[in-house]
Amino acid sequence: MSAALPAPARDATDLTARLVELAFLARAVDAELERLALAGRLRGFRPARRAVWPMVATGLALGPEDQLFGTSRDWPAALGRGVSAATLMRQMFAKDGDPALGRSLPGGLHDAVRKIILSDGSAAAHILHAVGFGIAAQIRRGGGVAVALFGAGAFASGDVHAAFSLAPVRAARVVFVARGPRGDEPGFDAATEAWGLRLVPVDGDHGAAVFDAVSRARVRALAGEGPTLIDARHQDSPRIPEDLLVLQRAGRLSSEAERATEAEIRATVWAARKSAEAASAPGPDTLFAHRLAADPDDDDPVEEDPT
């Protein structure tokens, strides 16, 4: 997997192939870590399951100046944004190599170079950060769009309502992407109409459709035309993801090729996991680092020595 920010795909089938490759990788990571979590060997992991499709598609659709906000469950978007499986595993196991020193739960990846912030805090707190980022981008008329992934369950949070009411007023350069199962949450239609938010429903099992919706929404946001809510939830009933069907129809994915790809990805995930497990954990000397910009840690008369 490439470590650089992903380049735009040249045509629709190439894009779909890339999406499928990333989704397969995400699924393999997801399955491996969920197995470890159930065995009690990885604490705090939250699986992405079917939502890997809108997550990787969203990550892949972003431009270099865009800022991704999400929860720790949205880690597959980081793969779409160019994070390697090896770095992702270091974060999952809170080991050296995690850009944030193992301070967040699995999936809570923070990477300033790739502009990724995935929080394990309140379910909707990050959505307001995306709105603020988008307001600033609109004020500056600069590049960059904020994209906020969130689970539909967060719709009940007051922070979502604050975000949705504030973003259109300021034409914030922000794209909201709701993912997860279509459950009993209230529909977005009435709410978005009330807030003046543009609503775009897409099939959450169709990565290319999510990619297209996010791409169009970010162009709209950059033009100052306001925020968009993409409803990328998936149906409850299991089905073959549309992207696989597209590749099969195009003759780009035979059963044999699919098995070979999955085997290669399993090997990649296994190597990344073993490397992460063998790596060192951040030492106690890092405990006080980064509390404040000008931190009096060395001669702090208040603290004990953690080492």
């Binding site: 912030i117 959505i127 307001l128 950060h129 307001i135």
Partner: peptide, 11 residues
């Protein structure tokens, strides 16, 4: 929350 996001942008 919005102030945090604006600061993350550089304001």
């Amino acid at each position: 929350g919005a102030a945090i996001g604006m600061a993350l942008y550089g304001m």
